[in-house]
Nucleic acid binder design. Structure first.
Length: 204
DNA sequence: TACCAGGTCCTCG
DNA sequence: CGAGGACATGGT
């Protein structure tokens, strides 16, 4: 088994299934996209309140967001932070009509690599590995130094089977590890990766 | 109180 | 390119 799969197994053994994306509705695709935009550099708990507001105002659909006044939208998503920017981002996304590809998503104002990959993976079940600040932090500690988004993504995708369920679960487990152990100030006691971190065993 | 949270855009060298 | 600043609320 390769090293990245070893890490996955260790995380899964400890934390189990994470059940991302944490939304449920008959409009899952669009709701996941909204969540992916709203959670940019923001705690998910703040995003949940914004999504609740949107739902209560019947604004959790592409058509409704494309139509609504941007100031009203901004006010409803206030809790998610950067609300003026994010209101504009939501409207830009809602007025996009093209084919859902990574390249097309990246051409939408407000959608960068992580949001594009999150949408592809979590809304459309495309096998794209999502890299975030947590992934960068954890794997720079496991290995040696920072890697770029593209470098890290390539490392995962060349060394893992192309399986959206695996990518989905792996990214969620990375977030879990970052919150509970591999924090800004690391708490290494009892970390599930203790035996492979800083021992040279992984050498990622 | 200060720092952090599932980033992206814009500007400047 | 890459670094640096702006964007903003809510929890600890």
């Amino acid at each position: 088994m390769n090293k990245l799969m070893q890490v996955y197994e260790l995380l899964f053994e400890r934390f189990g299934k994470q059940n991302w994306w944490p939304v449920s509705s008959n409009n899952k695709e669009f709701e996941v996209c909204v969540g992916a935009i709203l959670t940019q550099n923001t705690a998910w708990t703040n995003v949940e309140k914004a999504i609740k507001n949107l739902k209560e105002n019947n604004l959790l659909s592409k058509e409704a967001i494309a139509k609504v006044n941007v100031k009203k939208l901004a006010n409803l998503i206030r809790s998610a932070g950067y609300f003026n920017q994010k209101a504009k981002k939501l409207k830009e996304f809602a007025s996009f009509d093209g084919e859902v590809t990574r390249e097309n998503l990246l051409n939408i104002w407000g959608i960068g690599p992580e949001t594009a990959d999150s949408i592809l993976l979590y809304a459309y079940n495309r096998p794209t590995f999502v890299i975030d600040a947590y992934t960068k932090r954890i794997f720079s500690r496991l290995g040696r130094g920072e890697k770029s988004y593209e470098e890290l993504q390539e490392m995962f995708m060349k060394n893992l089977p192309e399986n959206y369920r695996l990518f989905n679960e792996y990214h969620a487990l990375i977030v879990r590890l970052a919150k509970e152990h591999c924090r800004t100030k690391p708490e290494c006691g009892n970390c599930p990766l203790n035996n492979v971190c800083q021992t040279g065993k992984l050498n990622i």
